[in-house]
Every structure is written in structure tokens, then in C-alpha cells.
Write a protein that binds this DNA or RNA. Structure first.
Lengths: 229, 229
DNA sequence: TGAATAGTGTCTATAAGACAATATCCC
DNA sequence: GGGATATTGTCTTATAGACACTATTCA
């Protein structure tokens, strides 16, 4: 961790966000001291920041080709007691079902549930819970980074259709709404959500329908190139 | 510029944004090679990032106590041809009249007009023009940083009253609207802007009125603590 | 047929845009 | 008074929420 330079060291960390069963989830790795941490690592001397984030996702979490966007840079002098480390945080949005496909032997990741103790876009740290509901202590300021990611995504949902990044390629309007509700942490009006999404021109109706449900199957949609205006 | 460490060096840069006479303005400093650059500098080993940005503003531009918020971190390997330098960019919002109060002898800043060659929130680099309207070549990726700042502020205006940071403490609704129009680069509906602002509960009407205009003087408002809900 | 959700249409409440009518100030 | 903008109020239009009704699937 020691470096010869005069300035702070630089790392990247990735807050992986997914939605499963109506709750927010994330991916963590075990670090020393029994703490869980975001996937991340040092930035190579000639490596683009986003490449470093993608590399951490691949080597530490076994994930590739995910939506990845810069979040915020955390640099409080005391955030890492061992040395001055500034980290450029990214967030990734992943279809929750991809968590199941990760080779746990090759990459011993932890899947955790995120509990958001604030409403709206108030912000603040969040809690990570394991499958049994026990609290997972997070390293450094990683609870703040995850909280910042949730806050950012909540804000983006209002004017951007990033919800589909959390779903498989084809999905129903109900699934999309439930993803939005899970991210926002509040119920949405069914009718107006439907109208708004269909009016946005971003959804493309496929001629397939939902399978294996015990009621009228919904039409499957996918996100298409922005169609008009 | 050379460092002994294995990782990138770290700096901060500040995009100072102001509004004067219906145009966007910024503050630049002269650097080698006749280029103009954003105020900025290296981050101290134990210095918080925002402190480094505030320090650069004070020493290079003579500005203190301004609204300052983190913008984005720029770290493309080729952005500085001399060495790998990652910069955490901040943006500052300043009442344009404060540009006139800067001691030009102590801090030889340049005031420039910003020309935005794109609409809405498309994004991309902007141009800096001097008082005579001549183009000021910008160092490194500073045109991108300024562009990112304009884009961010445009987005924030839709749901946050940051406009008042660009005005003196007391202002009229017309001044506030013109600031919004300048930032957004498009006209706003006068009536609905007025209603929206008054309904927001963020404006506090003072018992003073505009002075020295050749028509009915408008009431002066100031921003108050969010009052209700 | 019944349970359950999809999908459509209608009515109402709220916010935005357009515009008319006064109200105040300086000259 | 005339010119200019502020301020208030009304009407119209677009959008969101509420709700009723029909459609479609499986058990």
C-alpha cells in the first residue's frame, strides 16, 4: 500500500446494484478483518479509470459487460486509516439473475441485500445484510459509497430509463414498474407509470408474451433506440 | 510534475461559472504556452479534495466562500501529455459582479465568456472567448470540464434552486428567471416560472423593492430555509 | 366457471402556457 | 399622461391519479 509519491494513491471501487425479489442487492468481496468490501483496486499507471473499474468487476466478481458509470470520488484523508487513498467510485447496474450465474468457486463473492434507512433522496450510508438477514460490516466508507449509488440511481430514474439495466432483455411493464418501486423505495401509480413508459417511445413491444403465469400473460417489451423527436 | 509513485498523480480543477449580461462566464488563469486553464493544482497528501479546490480558487483566482461541488473525475491516460494526471473537477457558482471585485494585480485572472455549441443536455466541450470575442485556447481537456459543468448545472436547475448562487443576496424574479434562461440557453415561460418559484416555498419576499429602474420596481426576494411540507 | 392480472377508456385534479386587466414607478 | 414592467386573475391545455370495465390465461 505504501507508495513513493508525494500525493495520494488512487483506486477505483464499484457499487454493483441489482434488484431481486423486490429488494436491492449488491456484490461484495471478503477482505481482511472479516469485513466485506466493494470490488475495487488500484488504478494502473496507464489505465483509464473506467477500465480499472471494469477490471475489478471481472477479476473480483466475475462480471463482464455491465452498465458502468462514474459515481463520485471519495477522498477524505481519514477514510483509509492505513494511508491516504482517494477512490473514484463507479456504480454498475446488473440483472439480479446474473448473480446466480457467477462461478462462486473462482470468485468467492458475497451477495448482500441493501437496506436503505432513509427516504427519497436524503442520502447517507446504507446497510448490507447477508442471506440470513445478518448485518455485514463494510470496509472503510463503503456504506457511504453504496448509499451515494442508491441516491444517484433514484435521481436518475426520474428522467432516465435506466431501470432496464436491472432486468433481462425482455420484460413486462409490471416487472419494470416493480424495479422502479424497489429502487425508489415507494409504490408508483400503476396506470400513470404504464402511460408514461409507453409514451416515452423507448419501449419496443415484442410479439412475445409472458410464459407460465396463472393469469393473462403480459406482453414482453424491450428497450429500443429512442424512436422520435 | 514527476512523481516517484506507481500510480497516477492527483489534481483538482475548478470550473467557475457565473452569469453576466445574459451570458455564461468563467474565470481562467494563464499557463505556459499561452493557454488558458481552469484554476487548479495538486492535492496535498493530507488535504481533503474540496479543500484543495477551495485553495486553488483562493490562491489562483482570489475567490473565497463560494458554492463549490464535486463535478466529475477526469482521468484519460492521454489527457496530459507530460504525465498521467487524474483530476477531480469541481464547479463553483459565483455572482458575476464578484468578478469585478477581484484584485487583478494580485491574481492575474482572465474572465471569459462561455459559448455552448450544443442544446439541452447533449454535452460536449464549450468554447471560451475573451472580452473582445476572440477564442481563448484552453489547456488539456479543460473545455470538456467546462462543458460537463454546464451540462450538470442545466440538469440541476430542473429540480434545485441553485440559480440564486449566481445572484446577489437580494434579487427580483425577473433576474432569477434570466439567470435560469442564460444557464439553460433557452427562454422560459414568464408566468409559469413565477408561479413555480413562488410555490416552491424557497423564496422569501423582503419588504424592499428594486431601485433606480424606469418602471414599476419589482419586489426583492431572497432564498430562505425550505419552509414547509 | 373462478381467480388473477393485462389492457383500455373515462373522469377528475393539478400544473403549465396564454393572455387580459390592473398596479406602480420614472420621465 | 405615457412608457415600461410588476402583479394578479382567468381561461385553456397537458399530464397524473383514480377508477370502472373488458380481455385473456390457467386451474
Amino acid at each position: 500500500m505504501a507508495r513513493g509519491g508525494k500525493g495520494p494513491s488512487l483506486t477505483v471501487d464499484v457499487a454493483v446494484i441489482s434488484v431481486r425479489d423486490g429488494t436491492l442487492g449488491t456484490l461484495l468481496v471478503r477482505r481482511a478483518a472479516g469485513l466485506a468490501a466493494l470490488p475495487g483496486g488500484a488504478v494502473g499507471l496507464d489505465e483509464p479509470l473506467e477500465d480499472a473499474a471494469a477490471r475489478a468487476l471481472l477479476t473480483e466478481a466475475g462480471l463482464r459487460d455491465v452498465f458502468l458509470e462514474q459515481l463520485y470520488t471519495f477522498g477524505a484523508p481519514g477514510r483509509d486509516p492505513r494511508a491516504r487513498v482517494v477512490t473514484v467510485a463507479y456504480y454498475a447496474l446488473v440483472d439480479g439473475r446474473r448473480f446466480d450465474a457467477i462461478d462462486r468457486a473462482a470468485t468467492p463473492v458475497l451477495t448482500a441485500r441493501i437496506e436503505v434507512p432513509w427516504e427519497g433522496e436524503a442520502g447517507g450510508p446504507v446497510r448490507a445484510l447477508d442471506e440470513a438477514g445478518a448485518r455485514l460490516p463494510l470496509a472503510l466508507d463503503h456504506a457511504d459509497i453504496l448509499g451515494t449509488a442508491v441516491k444517484r440511481i433514484r435521481g436518475k430514474l426520474d428522467y432516465t430509463p435506466i431501470g432496464f439495466q436491472l432486468l433481462p432483455e425482455r420484460f413486462t411493464l409490471r416487472q419494470l414498474r416493480q424495479v422502479h418501486e424497489t429502487v425508489l423505495g415507494r409504490p408508483l401509480n400503476k396506470d400513470s407509470f404504464r402511460r408514461r413508459m409507453l409514451a416515452s417511445g423507448q419501449l419496443e413491444r415484442t410479439d412475445e408474451r409472458q410464459q407460465g403465469v396463472d393469469h393473462r400473460p403480459a406482453a414482453l417489451y424491450r428497450f429500443g433506440r429512442r424512436s422520435a423527436v
